[in-house]
Amino acid sequence: MNLLREPAPRKDPAVDARLNHFTSPAAPAVTSEPVVSLRDFTRRFGDNTIISGLNLQIAAGEFVILLGRSGSGKTTLLRTLAGLDPVEGQDVTIPGSRAVVFQDARLLPWKKVWRNVALGLKRGNARQLAEEALQEVGLGHRLEAWPLTLSGGEAQRVALARALVREPQLLLLDEPFAALDALTRLRMHELVLSLWRRHRPAVLMVTHDVDEAIALADRIVLLDGGKIVAQERITAARGPERATVAAPLRKRLLDALGGVVEERPAGEIVALHAGARP
């Protein structure tokens, strides 16, 4: 068990920068060139600063979870990494092959499931690739189905297949399981992990669910007010072994989340992040 954690100083930008610097070179998993690199990244909408001075690097094949409350800038950061927002000459490196799975599956309702997966594939064997990808997510029998006839979990599995069929270097997941019921969500965790092990993309997943983060991540990045306020690297293997480190980790994460903003009602964190899990 090797948990790295910085005490999260809140209002001191110098310490904040040190915190960010601390992660990438020192992190044991980073051996090759990072696939994602942001230096002093800032994003504003008008007068509203969403992200300020953020540094983040993600190594090839690393599973990073971005944790934060609503409005913390998680989705803005993900959209930048997805290439959906202009970076306006900032120091941002993202790989050419990316794929995103959003909270809503965003399948095109007028295309059958396999055509959704094959969307934009230029190769001649697109149908075969789509079939294989759908079999991987356990939907080999729904190739010809219309997306609007799928359940929420099925639609998200199609979205996963559509992302993975492109063999991306960077897979971005934007709260992909937030709308699913608890049992389906646990199954999706297993599926995502097995797909990740097989294809080894770097993953950045956004969530506000602390337990989900602990179950899946190599590294948890805690975002608040557009800044990285804490990072946790988890080296314990996923599954039962991780359960032993989960409790203190969970407490630290919740404390960090709760301590960031003063005058917060005590019950709010529990409502947001400590949702009952089976």
Binding site: R106, L108, G120
Partner: peptide, 24 residues
């Protein structure tokens, strides 16, 4: 959101028009 989804998969503008806008 559908357009954005298609864009995130790397579809060109012409492909977005053909696969998303016109059928929609």
């Amino acid at each position: 959101r559908l357009l954005e989804g298609a864009r995130s998969l790397g579809l060109s503008r012409a492909a977005q028009v053909w696969h998303v806008i016109l059928p929609g």
